[in-house]
Amino acid sequence: MGERDWRPFIYGGLASIVAEFGTFPIDTTKTRLQIQGQKVDPRHVELRYSGMVDCFVKTSQQEGVKALYCGIWPAVLRQATYGTIKFGTYYSLKKALASRRADGGAREHVASNTACAALAGGLSSAIANPTDVLKVRMQVGDEKRNIVRCFISIYEAEGVRGLWRGVGPTSQRAAVIAAVELPVYDACKKRLAVTMGDTPVNHFVSSLVASLGSAVASTPLDVIRTRLMNQRKLKGHIARPGEIIYKGTTDCFLQTVRNEGFPALYKGFVPTWLRMGPWNIIFFVTYEQLKQLY
């Protein structure tokens, strides 16, 4: 390997795209479950779905199976940027720090790995935020147009700020997920390698363990960022009497808990976990196989 090794970036992006295609319908059900029941948003007051399976069936029957993949292209574009930067930055930083330690990186250092992962997750998510906004708007079903028209619509009505709506909780969520997921995966893989070796079975088990912790830690922030991203705040718009708009992450958190109770922060937890598990399995198995090509 040369001093500038771009393979972690390339492999991370490719593996992320493969994983996204394989789990996107689950992500759509998660998004729809998270935005329903909001007393502050008249468009989503009604509880249309009783759970993940009900959401999947109703969406397929009422809007067609294609609706489950509405927003897939901004999601793929997001992974092409977010996934590439996140995993490439993490493994590059981890390698750089390991080379400076006395043991040469022979042991996994949880603290430094967690810091590298949090930085990589937060940075990459902030950069890719506009693609996340497009994905959420199209998944909810309000934006049926193609990705370019959806982008233009948001930009014209809400300005540049509309494309970075929810960037705070999105970056925080990504940092939390990465800080839990990547170090746990690396540590688990290294420990299991003693008995299983560096095999796909090891990668499968390690990614499954990593996904549970990240789902528990990140779901509340995921609910908040989804609601903020789905909220339209038109340029020059003045709120009417009785109209409530989330002012930011803290306000959305407080209003959600006040109006719907603490469990509302875990709306969509089951599809979140069920998506993270397969997503991580597909990603890490693909990533590890790509690494073995060269």
Rank of each mutant, 00 (worst) to 15 (best):
A174M: 09
G159H: 06
V201D: 09
G141C: 05
S207M: 06
V160T: 05
L192W: 12
I154P: 07
V167C: 05
V148S: 01
V148N: 01
V176W: 08
A175V: 08
Y155V: 05
S153E: 06
D198V: 13
Y185F: 11
A179D: 11
M138G: 01
E156I: 12
L163E: 09
G162K: 02
L192C: 03
G159Y: 13
G168M: 03
S211L: 11
R137V: 00
P200G: 14
A175L: 14
V136D: 11
E181D: 03
S211Y: 14
N202P: 05
L182Q: 06
V136R: 06
A210E: 10
A210M: 09
V148F: 09
P169L: 08
L208G: 14
P200K: 15
W164L: 07
W164R: 04
V205K: 05
V205A: 13
I147S: 06
G168A: 06
V180W: 02
R137A: 01
V209L: 13
P183L: 14
P169Y: 04
A187R: 15
A210Q: 12
H203C: 15
N202Y: 07
L182C: 03
S207P: 09
P169S: 13
A179H: 10
G162Q: 04
L192Y: 03
Q172M: 14
V167K: 02
Y185Q: 03
G197E: 10
N202L: 08
D142A: 08
D186K: 12
T170V: 01
S153M: 07
S211E: 08
Y185D: 06
K144W: 01
H203G: 14
V201M: 14
V180K: 05
A178L: 02
F204N: 11
R145P: 00
A178P: 04
V180N: 04
V160R: 09
V160E: 01
Y155D: 04
G197M: 06
A157M: 02
K190A: 11
Y155G: 00
K190N: 09
E156C: 11
R149T: 03
D198L: 10
R137K: 07
N202D: 08
V184D: 04
V201C: 06
C188L: 15
V167D: 03
V140R: 05
M196K: 04
F151M: 03
V194S: 07
E156A: 15
Y155P: 00
V148E: 00
E156F: 11
E156Q: 14
M196W: 04
A193T: 09
E143C: 00
I177V: 13
L208C: 15
M138P: 00
E143R: 01
V140N: 02
I154M: 08
R173K: 05
G197R: 10
I154E: 08
R165Y: 00
G166P: 11
R137F: 00
A187H: 11
E143D: 03
H203N: 15
S206I: 14
S211A: 15
M138C: 01
F204I: 13
F204A: 06
A210F: 09
V167W: 10
A157N: 11
T195I: 08
T199F: 04
R191Q: 15
T170K: 07
F151H: 06
K189N: 07
D198R: 15
R191D: 14
R145Y: 00
V160L: 09
